[in-house]
């Protein structure tokens, strides 16, 4: 069986890490799957899905690392009027951080539970907020 659930999240800051582990558990509850896998997938090109420990210091270190790798004021090419949008592109750093972070993660489902490691949490990583974001939970199993 395959189940698809989506959730909309309002982010609040330009760069932000938002825990969505409980959202994955809630999605699984609705699916009634005992064994399988769950994918957590972001719907956007300026966000990412990350797995790490929920510690303020780690979350800051990750955001700081990405800021060092992708500084705000580099001469990016994605800084120009986009005729098909009618808007000027201003979010190259969001795209590049998203590229580095990846768009999804996957976890096993065992005995009806998302099998996370003791320190593992799932994060929606916002890189161009604030915005209303959508993440998908795709559950495959029986």
């Amino acid at each position: 069986m395959i189940f698809h659930v989506f959730k909309t999240i309002q982010t609040e800051r330009y760069n932000q890490s938002i825990r969505v582990t409980e959202c994955a558990r809630e999605a699984l509850l609705g699916a009634n799957v005992q064994n399988g896998v769950i994918y957590v997938i972001t719907n956007h090109t300026t966000t990412g899905i990350a797995v790490n420990e929920h510690l303020e210091c780690i979350e800051s270190d990750i955001q700081n690392m990405l800021a060092r790798l992708v500084p705000e004021n580099d001469p990016y090419l994605h800084a120009r009027m986009l005729p098909t949008y009618g808007q000027t592109a201003g979010n190259p750093t969001g795209h590049l951080k998203s590229h580095l972070t990846g768009n999804h993660c996957v976890f096993p489902i065992v005995d009806g539970e998302v099998r996370l490691g003791a320190a593992q949490e799932i994060f929606l990583m916002e890189f161009d907020g604030p915005a209303r974001r959508t993440i998908h939970f795709t559950i495959i199993g029986e």
């Binding site: 609040e12 098909t84 009618g86 808007q87 604030p130 209303r132």
Partner: peptide, 21 residues
């Protein structure tokens, strides 16, 4: 009319957060 073709419709909550940022 505005030639802004792909901007998402935004709830007022998002607007206020954008203003705050």
């Amino acid at each position: 009319s505005l030639h802004i073709l792909q901007s998402a419709v935004k709830p007022i909550e998002t607007v206020f957060l954008q203003m705050r940022n």
